[in-house]
Amino acid sequence: MQRKTSAISAMVATAAVAGLALTAPAQAADLVDYKVVDDWTIPESLTGQPGDPVNGKVVAIDRKLGNCLSCHKMPIPEEQFHGETGPSLWGVGNRYEPEHLRLRIVDSKVINPETMMPAFYRVEGLHMVKDGFEDQPILTAQQVEDVVAYLMTLTEEEPQTN
């Protein structure tokens, strides 16, 4: 599936490849182009930049950004209250490659249309979005890459509790 490239997104993508950081919250037109393969992976980095796992962890925890802990248990003992509506993400770096995780985060619904997990990098097809959040993805392209890099560090399996 090839997303439509607008002139602006191509420019932004080029800017990102050139190493310019996108600091402002992403606007609709900012969505970089990406290619989904077999409804299962996005092989190429969205930004051409390596993800920063340290920032990825911050993004995953932040309730206004990834807020992954609302639904997932993660190896982050310093944070209280991990959700349980999604599977545990302990050891997820052993189970997947970055290209799988990238699609999960960009748009889980490509893999499972019924899923509860939000698409973190998609703006079309949404309904009744609150003022100020329309046409904005939840995460920027670089934040997606950072979260992917962080998830790849999660290789420890969950200790058995009993």
Binding site: M116, P118, L126, H127, F133
Partner: peptide
Amino acid sequence: TRRGQLDLACTH
């Protein structure tokens, strides 16, 4: 019906 930026329905 799913709604909002998080795209969830009450049912979820």
